[in-house]
Structure formats: structure tokens, C-alpha cells
Design a binder for these strands. Structure first.
Length: 99
DNA sequence: CTAATGACATTTG
DNA sequence: ACAAATGCCATTA
């Protein structure tokens, strides 16, 4: 059985190491699609909660985006991983993971 | 199959 | 620079 779109997203996101982030667009690009919307949807479902670091996924403009347990929580987690967040924003130039 | 939805992105004011 | 409007894609009802 072929992998669903979300499972592909998870496979990619799973590669993102600690202290690093990615964007919905980057994931879509890795899939050779423009379905960043669908990627976000997949994350919201996220059946592989601890296995997939969905909190390391942010918006393309460096903003946080959303999070099931609250954006606040997301910020805390990222900060704990060593990521510097300024004004609820992330320096993508520095932390963006490239596939 | 058609319509509605959402953890987005880009363009416009 | 910020806020609102428009466009996009896959999933779900």
C-alpha cells in the first residue's frame, strides 16, 4: 500500500534534527509539490506525535505558525532545543534544515 | 462525486 | 512593517 501524503510529510520531518527547524513550504518542496496547506493539515493530525518533531515546523516567514497544544508551548520547546526566538520569530537563515 | 476545512504563502492596501 | 484578501493543495464530511 502506498504511503499517504501525511506519512510522506512525517518521513521528511522526522529527519530534522534537534535544534533545527523547517517550514511547511520546505516540506512541500521536498515532496516536489506546493501543497504546504496539506502539509499543515497532516501535522495537525500527526498520529506519530513523539516520533515526529512537529514543533520544529514553522511558517516560511519565520513566524511560529500554529500548534495543537498552543503556540506558547511550541516556543518553549524550541527554546529548550537551543533555538533563539526573538519576538516570537525564528532566524530561518540560521536554523532552517535543508533536505 | 461535490463542498467545506485548515498548524500556509503570496500579493495588495 | 503590519493587516487583510486571495490563491493553493490534500484531506475529510
Amino acid at each position: 500500500m502506498k504511503k499517504s501524503f501525511n506519512e510522506k510529510c512525517f518521513s521528511i520531518l522526522r529527519k530534522v534534527q534537534r535544534g533545527r527547524v523547517t517550514t511547511y513550504k520546505e516540506i512541500a518542496k521536498a515532496l516536489r509539490c506546493k501543497a504546504y496547506r496539506a502539509v499543515g493539515n497532516a501535522m495537525s493530525k500527526n498520529p506519530y506525535a513523539p516520533l515526529v518533531p512537529c514543533h520544529r515546523v514553522v511558517n516560511a516567514n519565520g513566524k511560529l505558525g500554529g500548534f495543537a497544544s498552543g503556540s506558547k508551548k511550541k516556543i518553549e520547546m524550541l527554546k529548550k532545543e537551543g533555538i533563539v526566538i526573538l519576538n516570537e520569530r525564528i532566524d530561518l537563515e540560521r536554523y532552517l534544515h535543508r533536505f
